[in-house]
Amino acid sequence: MANPTPRVRVPKSAKKGEMIEIKTLISHEMESGQRKDSAGKTIPRQIINKFVAEFNGKQVFAADWHPAISANPYQSFFYKASESGEFKFSWKDDNGQTYTSTAKLDVA
């Protein structure tokens, strides 16, 4: 599998108190553990099981994902802009790896 690539859409700037929508997507097979290969053997489960969004080090939003989440998992949520800073997004893979991405937000 190709290395999972996160893609995140965060506005560059926001007014204080403004509600902004954060959209995230990461390329990943999200192998459910239900499929079989051509030899009839079950393909072992390998999914991203957790997504966490932090702003300036404080958790804003998190999600647990089960095998029923589609390949290339999408997640959107909201953030109420209060101060300038940086988002950090992380995705935890069943294989122990964590993929991360960051995005800056200017709050006027």
Binding site: M19, K58, V60, W65, P67, I69, F77, F78, Y79, K80
Partner: peptide
């Protein structure tokens, strides 16, 4: 968290 401003989120499922 309260920082979300609103309790709204979306994903895609099988």
């Amino acid at each position: 968290s309260p920082d979300c401003g609103k309790a709204s989120a979306a994903t895609r499922m099988r």
